[in-house]
Design a protein around this nucleic acid. Structure first.
Length: 593
RNA sequence: GGCCCCGUAGCGCAGUUGGUUAGCGCGUCGCCCUGUCACGGCGAAGGCCGCGGGUUCGAGUCCCGUCGGGGUCGCCA
């Protein structure tokens, strides 16, 4: 006698044996004095024949059963050669109802998995997770973390936990805060990432650290953003960028080979940030299709068309840009559709999206064309790389805003024209991002902020004059991008106090502020920190992409809705006055000393 | 915080220029059929049309507000 709890794993080789199965009733049907129960567990479904109708009749969907029976081949002469529930069935001798089930709030069968409201699914998440596709997602996720631990262990990385109750730092995203009963008026913050702790671990001499860490950020939601999320956090000492990339590539190759059945070509291609922005207008390019952007800034330098000319009153520090993206076959779009593109652009905060249609004979049409000079019209299609029948979309203005619009237009073109191969896996490293970007200062002046984070090392630390011209300084940062989604990012870190101090100077963080917020890290840098660097991979996004899920909610067991609530538990919820008092929420912290 | 879409039976949806008794499929319940597998047949129950105002002789339908869900821009070092 064999015992098994894996209904779906029964095979023809098991015929003749007696098994014990546990699971849920997926379907029950009566035919010819025989009752059939499709019994489902997390591994799949098997059909059980119950000869006692008195036993079978009360069974309803989602009753939890234990069944003892003999595995049998299916009888010949079945009208349907495509067996729905496996190659074998079980003839029951004992059927025990372990627990009954109320009528379901929504269908649990796989074929009905689409189309149920998300809120309802989350309220009954334990039923939602019984659905085979959701169960598959969570099993996939478990496989991902298992392989991560395998690969990390094979390379002697230590799994070290860091605090979830830690110090609030004003940099970056909004913190989730936790009141502290023992020190009324003082608060912990939940970590946005283990960044500072993993750097301290490097100083402590653990040369290779990893952790699958939960991170918390109190920002608005997206389909790929939750307030708490998981990342694979890695840090290494005495390493270069290529060392980190090599580990990640080995990991990604293993994951995709074992779980997707795809061989990722290595080394994964590299793009510099500058090249990515130039060709795709974005630092996370989708390389599954072409339609690369074309720079028209110089082409239109002397244009009579005002929209494409740099305004005389424009900020001299902000680069002016005219760029284009070609929509193959786009000239056939009716006026109504072209107008809809304007609405689309305006919904993204742009003034509009200029376009020129290339006619069958190469002649240009559309409202923009007549504003251009004869010379400009003559060379336009060739410069854009457009042919007869194409539509050329233009964006003009502040360079970062124009590129932003063009990048979105490029993806939109790819989707509308069906240019994106949805079975493709296009990985790319994007490297050499700028250290800083200009921001409005607190009093209206010009300031700088770190693009990656303020512990990222400058690309050339020999010259190391980044503080002289912050806008031109590049960093040793590297992001890993898959199909237009950023799935991870990291950098080589600064390991010398003097350089760290200069970064703080550039971003306008005073010595007092730096000491107050990061003093413990700066102190640690006084004790011989090794050169180090690392990376973090977003596990939720990674799993969502692997599973083909549209939202990371589909690879998280108990996610939250867009307003941050959990319909299952009712969290977040008000607390009582006594809880509030005991937590010391309303107390004012006494300054030390 | 801005913008867009959606809220009709347990679930998924339809509901015409505002018109009389709000429909369909699945599910549920009852009966029948019986090696079926998204079985089939007959029948029944099941509705504050998210909520609150307004316009109108009349509102599921139009307007305003609000709540909830989803998407997106800002935001996410």
């Amino acid at each position: 006698m064999i015992r098994t709890h894996q209904a779906g794993s029964l095979r023809t080789a098991d015929i003749g044996t007696t098994v014990t199965l546990t699971g849920w009733v997926a379907r029950r049907r009566d035919h010819g004095g025989v009752a059939f129960v499709d019994l489902r567990d997390a591994s799949g479904v098997v059909q059980v024949v119950i000869r006692d109708e008195e036993v079978a009749r009360p069974l309803r969907s989602e009753f939890c059963l234990r069944i003892v029976g003999e595995v049998a081949a299916r009888p010949a002469g079945n009208a349907n050669p495509q067996l729905a529930t496996g190659d074998v069935e079980v003839i029951s001798s004992v059927v025990e109802v372990l627990s009954e089930a109320a009528p379901l709030p929504f269908p649990v069968e796989e074929h009905a998995s689409a189309g149920v409201g998300e809120e309802l699914r989350l309220k009954y998440r334990y039923l939602d997770l019984r659905r085979p596709d959701m169960a598959r997602n969570l099993r996939l996720r478990a496989s991902v973390t298992r392989i991560i631990r395998d690969v990390m262990a094979a390379h002697d990385f230590l799994d070290i936990e860091t605090p979830y109750l830690t110090r609030s730092t004003p940099e970056g995203a909004r913190d989730f805060l936790v009141p502290v009963r023992l020190q009324p008026g003082s608060w912990y913050a939940l970590p946005q990432s283990p960044q500072l702790f993993k750097q301290l671990l490097m100083i402590a001499g653990f040369e290779r650290y990893f952790q699958i860490a939960r991170c918390f950020r109190d920002e608005d939601f997206r389909a790929d953003r939750q307030p708490e999320f998981s990342q694979l956090d890695i840090e290494m000492s005495f390493c270069e960028q290529s060392d980190v990339q090599q580990i990640i590539e080995e990991l990604l190759v293993r994951l995709w080979k074992d779980l997707v059945g795809y061989d990722i070509p290595v080394p994964i291609r590299r793009l510099t940030y500058a090249e990515s922005m130039r060709r795709f207008g974005i630092d996370r390019p989708d390389l599954r299709f072409g339609c690369e952007l074309v720079d028209f800034t110089d082409y239109f330098a002397e244009t009579p068309f005002r929209v494409f000319r740099k305004p005389s009153d424009s900020d001299p520090d902000r680069a002016f840009h005219v760029g284009a993206v070609v929509m193959p076959g786009g000239a056939a779009q009716p006026r109504k559709v072209l107008d809809a593109w304007q609405d689309w652009a305006r919904s993204r905060g742009a003034r509009g999206l200029a376009y020129v249609l290339v006619g069958a004979g190469g002649e240009l049409a559309g409202p923009v064309a007549k504003n251009l000079s004869g010379t400009e019209r003559a060379g336009l299609a060739a410069h854009a790389g457009a042919v007869a029948g194409d539509c050329i979309f233009f964006a003009a203005g502040d360079r970062s805003e124009a590129l932003n619009l063009l990048a979105a237009a490029r993806v939109e073109v790819g989707e509308r024209r069906g240019l994106i191969d949805h079975d493709a896996w296009e990985f790319v490293w994007v490297t050499d991002a700028p250290m800083f970007e200009a921001v409005e200062g607190p009093h209206g002046g010009r300031g700088w902020t770190a693009i990656h984070h303020p512990f990222t090392a400058p690309a050339d630390d020999v010259a190391a004059d980044f503080h002289e011209r912050p806008g031109e300084a590049l960093s040793k940062a590297y992001d890993i991008v898959l199909n237009g989604s950023e799935i991870g990012g990291g950098s080589i870190r600064i390991h010398r106090s003097e350089m760290q101090q200069r970064v703080f100077d550039v971003i306008g963080l005073s010595r007092e502020e730096a000491a107050s917020q990061f003093g413990f890290l700066l102190d640690a840098f006084a004790y011989g920190p090794p050169p180090h660097g690392g990376i973090a991979l977003g596990i939720d996004r990674l799993c969502a992409l692997m599973a083909g899920a549209e939202s990371i909610r589909d690879v998280i067991a108990f996610p939250k809705t867009a307003s941050g609530s959990d319909p299952l538990t009712g969290a977040p919820s008000p607390i009582t006055a006594s809880q509030r008092a005991e937590a010391g929420i309303d107390a004012v912290a006494q300054p030390p000393g």
